[in-house]
Design a protein around this nucleic acid. Sequence first.
RNA 1: AAAGUGGGUCGGACAACCGCGGAGGUUUUAGCCUCGGAGGAAAGUCCGGGCACCGCAGAGCAGGAUGCCAGCUAACCGCUGGGCGGCGUGAGCCGACGGCCAGUGCAGCAGAGAGUAAACCGCCGAUGUUCGUUUAGGCGAGCAGGUAAGGGUGAAAGGGUGCGGUAAGAGCGCACCGCGGAUCUGGUAACAGAGACGGCAUGGUAAACCCCAUCCGGUGCAAGACCAAAUAGGGAAACAUAGUCGCUGCUUGCAGCGGCGCUCUGCUGCUCGUAGAGGUUUCCGGGUAGGUCGCUUGAGUGAAGCAGUGAUGCUUUUUCCAGAUGAAUGGUUGUCACUCCUUUGGAGUACAGAACCCGGCUUAUAGACCCACUUUUCUU
Length: 146
Amino acid sequence: MHSNSELVTHPDSPLSPPKSSDFRFPKSSRLLTPKDYAQVFADAEKFANRHWTLIVRANHLDYPRLGLAIAKKQLPRAVWRNRIKRIAREAFRLHKKELCGYDIVVLSRKGMQEIDSFALQKSFLHLVRKIRNSRLKSAPGRKERL
RNA sequence: AAAGUGGGUCGGACAACCGCGGAGGUUUUAGCCUCGGAGGAAAGUCCGGGCACCGCAGAGCAGGAUGCCAGCUAACCGCUGGGCGGCGUGAGCCGACGGCCAGUGCAGCAGAGAGUAAACCGCCGAUGUUCGUUUAGGCGAGCAGGUAAGGGUGAAAGGGUGCGGUAAGAGCGCACCGCGGAUCUGGUAACAGAGACGGCAUGGUAAACCCCAUCCGGUGCAAGACCAAAUAGGGAAACAUAGUCGCUGCUUGCAGCGGCGCUCUGCUGCUCGUAGAGGUUUCCGGGUAGGUCGCUUGAGUGAAGCAGUGAUGCUUUUUCCAGAUGAAUGGUUGUCACUCCUUUGGAGUACAGAACCCGGCUUAUAGACCCACUUUUCUU
C-alpha cells in the first residue's frame, strides 16, 4: 500500500511529476481491436461514480490495458471527446502500476464536458483505488474461464 | 475627437519535466539521437472539380439545377466588373433581377360590380314611346334607355390633370404627363438617350402549373488495387496401406491387371452377395481474419516582375509544411502579456479538433491590431 499513501499525501496535485521511471503508454497497453473490446464487455465488473464508468476485467498479463469507448451520442462535439480521452489516458498512464493485470474500458457520461479537468482526474483516481482494492484478478472463477 | 462603412491580419508567448502519433539515422531489436506534428473556419456536408470503380453506339423523353449583361476559372448555385431597382445625409449595403399580348389556374372580407367588367346611390332622359295639359308651338310626368364625371366599398374600380364637347357623359377631340413604340445615337452586351407614330390599349401572381435558354450518367477512399495465416471445402501430384496368390511386361525386382482377404458406410435386423470410400505429404486456384498500398508534391506555399479597372493569368525564383486508423497533436509547474473582479489576491484568454485532396458558400468566434474611406464637431 505504498502507492496508496502517495495518493493521500498529494491530494491537491494528482498529476504532479512522477518520480519513478515507467510512465510510458505504448500500444501494447491499449485495447486495439474490436475483439479486445468484446472480450472485456463479455465478462467484466463495472466500477462507476458520478463522472466515470469503468468496465474492468482481469487479463493475466504483467501490464494493464486501456480502451476508450466515448460515445458520440453523449458527447456530440469532437473537442469534448478528445478532452475526455486525454484526461483518461493521462490518469491511466500515471497510475499504471496500480492497475497491473486489468483490462479497462472507459465509458463516457452525458454532460461530462461541463466538469473541470481537476475534478475528473480526482474522480478517476477514486475508481483506480477501488479497482486495486477489489482483488478481482485473484478471483478463481474468472481465471478458469480464460 | 466621436459615430460609422468596407477590407485584411493575429487569435496568448517562453522555459522545464512527464507523455503520444510520424519520418530519418543508429543499432546490442530494445532503446537512443535528430527533424517536424490542427484550423480560419479543420465545422455544416450546401454547391463545384480532381481521383477511383461501374455503366455507356448515337439521340431523345422523364427528372433536377441555374436564370439582367460581360468576363475569370479545372468547374461552380463561386468570384470580378458593369446595368437596373430599392435603402442610407454619405462611405456603402441589399436584390431567385428571363417570360403571365403560348396555354391553364388562383385571389379572404367588403362591395351593385374584380377581368369577354359592373348601373346601388346619383346624373341625363337629346332619341323613341305612353299619359296629362295647351287652340297651337310647346310644357310637365313616367317608361324604354343612355352615362364610369361624382358618392360609397376595397390593397386594387380598366391611365392622370385641364380645356373643349355633350341631354348627361365618355380618349369622343386637343394640350401636357404617363404608357407602348418603327427608327436613330452611344455601348461587346445588359441598358441608356432621342423619338415618327399609336391610342388607352397591356391589372396582379411564375419561391402557381408552365414556356424559353443553358447545363447535368451513377456511386463514393468503407472508392478501389495488392499480399494473405488458421479452419472447412474444391482440384492435382507423390508416397504409403495387410497381406497373399496368380498372370503379363521387361531394365530381374519393380510396375500393371485379376482373385481372396482388412476397416467403414449403403442396399432389410443377421448371413451371403453387391456398390462405394480408405492413410500421409506436397502443390495449385478462389477466398476470410489480418496486413500493405491508395495517402499526401499539390488547380501547393512565399517573393518579385509583367498584362489587366478587377477577379485572374503568365514568367522567374523559393520552399517541402500532419498523415492517424479503438484513431497522435496532450498534461503539470513556473515566468511574462492581456482582460475582468469583491484588487497583499483570485478568475479568465473565444469558436472549435484533420480522416482522399482541392476551389467556394454558409454558420460559430473572447479579445487585439492594421489599412482605406464617410459623416459630424472642435482647434489652427
